Simulated assay, not measured.
Amino acid sequence: MHPKVKAILIWALVIFAVYAIITSPDKAAGILEGIWDVIVGAFRSIGQFFNSLLD
């Protein structure tokens, strides 16, 4: 991907995120909380997998 196109897409994503947070902070917080729960759950699952390998 061309570097300028990539930069434009990143800026568009950042601007959209700021807009979403300003217009609906409760909804944005809920989305971030959901993403965080998925990440934490994935790390827990990976940890349980390696623990089961060691048992």
Rank of each mutant, 00 (worst) to 15 (best):
V38W: 11
I31V: 06
G47R: 07
L53W: 14
A29K: 15
L32T: 07
I22F: 11
H2Y: 15
N51H: 11
G47C: 12
A42T: 09
I22R: 13
I35Y: 01
L13R: 11
M1G: 15
D55S: 13
V14K: 10
Y19M: 08
F43Q: 03
I21Q: 00
T23W: 13
A28F: 06
L32Q: 06
S45R: 02
P25L: 00
D37M: 09
I21P: 00
A17L: 04
N51C: 04
A20T: 02
I22L: 14
T23M: 10
Q48W: 12
L54N: 05
E33P: 12
A28W: 04
L13D: 05
V14R: 04
W11R: 15
W11C: 13
D26C: 06
W36C: 13
I21G: 00
L13H: 12
E33W: 13
P3V: 00
G47W: 15
I15Y: 07
A17S: 05
A20E: 00
I31T: 09
W36S: 08
S45G: 09
L13N: 10
F49H: 11
V14S: 01
A7V: 04
L32F: 12
L9N: 07
D55Q: 11
I46R: 09
W36N: 08
I46D: 05
L13M: 09
D26I: 14
I31S: 10
G41P: 02
T23V: 05
I31W: 10
I31E: 12
R44A: 08
L13V: 12
K27H: 14
P25F: 00
L13S: 09
I15N: 01
V40G: 04
A42G: 14
P3F: 06
F16H: 12
N51W: 07
I46A: 10
L54Q: 08
V40S: 00
G34S: 01
V5A: 07
D37F: 12
H2C: 10
V14P: 00
N51S: 15
A12Q: 12
L9E: 10
D26G: 03
V38C: 07
V40K: 02
K4H: 02
V38R: 05
L9S: 12
S52T: 12
P3E: 01
W11L: 12
G34W: 01
G34A: 01
A17I: 03
I39V: 06
P3T: 04
K27L: 14
L9V: 09
L13G: 13
G34K: 02
L32Y: 13
F16Y: 14
I39R: 08
K27T: 10
F50W: 11
A28E: 05
I39N: 01
A17V: 00
W11T: 09
I22K: 15
D26K: 03
P3W: 00
P3R: 03
S45K: 09
I10A: 07
